[in-house]
Design a protein around this nucleic acid. Sequence first.
RNA 1: GCGCCUGUAGCUCAGCUGGAUAGAGUACUCGGCUACGAACCGAGCGGUCAGGAGUUCGAAUCUCUUCAGGCGCACCA
Length: 587
Amino acid sequence: MKTKLSQILINVVEQLKQQGVLAADQQVRVQVDPTKDKAHGDFATNLAMLLAKPAGLAPRDLAAKIIALLPQDSIIQKVEMAGPGFINFFVDDQAKFAVVANILQQKAEFGKVDVGVGRSVLLEYVSANPTGPLHVGHGRGAAYGASLANLLSFAGFNVTREYYVNDAGRQMDILATSLWLRYLELCGETFTFPSNGYKGDYIYAIARQLHDMRGDTLRKPVFEVFAGVFPDETQEGGDKEQHIDDVILRTKALLGATDYEVVFQLVLKDILTDIEQDLGEFGVDFDNWFSERSLMNSGVVDAALEKLQKSGKVYEQNGALWFRSTDYGDEKDRVVVRDNGLKTYFASDIAYHFNKLERGFDILIDIWGSDHHGYVPRVKAAMQAMGTNPDALQVLLVQFAILYRGGERAQMSTRSGQFVTLRELRDEVGTDAARFFYVQRKSEQHMDFDLDLAKSKSNENPVYYIQYAHARICSVLGQLADKGYTLDVAQGLANLEQLNTEYEIDLATRLAQFPDLIGRAASANEPHQIAYYLKDLAHGLHSYYNSQQFIVEDDGLRNARMALIMAVQQVLQNGLAIIGVSAPEKM
RNA sequence: GCGCCUGUAGCUCAGCUGGAUAGAGUACUCGGCUACGAACCGAGCGGUCAGGAGUUCGAAUCUCUUCAGGCGCACCA
């Protein structure tokens, strides 16, 4: 309907050009919008106001010219000029119900558009360090990423979902060392656990596994472990960072490369498996789990650094290797290889993003926590230096949820082991409510997450409002048989002209807007628009439901109503599927 | 100090690439089940769109500026 009106108006603009009212090279973006006020018809265009100046006419005079050029069309009941020069279109009520047949025919496909035109997207999200279970802070990125992937896919993009596993680097060494220390405790050794080690309970569980596997074979006396290490911060003149670094070195030396790798792989695999399962139960899946270590070990990082070196984009200073990111607008140059010979996380990321494009993707989307926003310019700089197009990368930043518990802000720290896990949240509020809660808000919006409210009063979550609408429709359809009627969709579709109440027209209008909404939401990377749309659609259904009895004696009218609510049911399903929420038949 | 994000009803948030009288939920006050599910519906109350200046037919939306909050500014990831 909307596209049809746009087409008509584009033709009118062409005619205006031929008549010389507009210059032949005049650029025009025809805009047709649904109206907010029914008094303004169904659709309105501001075309006359936009073109008034170039045409050298008063907006209302130009509007009159445009209206005169409009062709006769059966679906357009009336055209009016209004206000400063709006042109309002009144669409024939019966034409509005055509969408019902489309929906029932296309089913789960209804709403698909092609703004993606088959372009391939690599969508990277979550990518939390595998140093512990996911907490509620990761939940938002997970819910957003998964919903966006569904949305883009629905909008015609070819989406690949990827989790970047940061399994290289110092944090992983701290983790492996923490595990071994807990293992030593199980062997009977006693000592003070490093203040900068990972203290979460999950480490104990893995340590027990290790002990079951290897008995005491990996045990070393404590005095050897802590021999000559820098004191911890709890001691006079100590430092937690230097302390843990020394303990790592001792751990590696005492265990040897082979056994250290055993410990390392055990904790990595255990945590990664847990994360994968956790996300899976949250309805968040991935096509690839991409290992940073594999990038390192296969020489891809070295190759990338070499490439930069050859083109003179890196230089040595103070024993470290620096990338000239300032050449590309970054605030300062960045270290890629430290003076101790270790490559930085940034070095891997240069190689990783280069690798992504080498795999043939047209568009790269990274979803990061907003605290990483300062990181964007250097990655783009690196992409440019590597000879690739930095505009291929879109970084979407997700604000952290600020947790409130008992009216106070709850602090979260993986290291200290004090956090609410995503799993706990799912157990207490349910996957549907959690998914909806996260995706309800625009990603860059700060979000207050009241744990008490989410847990205790979960019925207030609007997700139930939408699901209830769906269940209600299912219930009504079930009632047909109880009342001795059989559903006849064909008859319903043939009698749509019997639908004429404001509720019915309103529902049909909303349903018709769904594909357009998908296109807009996908273009803006905003799955929250789907959530708001569904709330509106559900409201339309509930109001309709309360206004009159659906199941009436007249066969044609009854079946027409069934067709309409079945269309609503279908669109609710399609929309809920995108945001990863179930559409239950009963509640 | 510099950069990014945010500021809309008491509270939590929408506001569709500048459009007509700024919306929803919640809270509060009323009203609606012998009805296909009341996890619902209807009505009311509630706003200097943080403040100021500018751009134009028209600004919550764009520009500048002030204020307030969040987050970054490592040879950490």
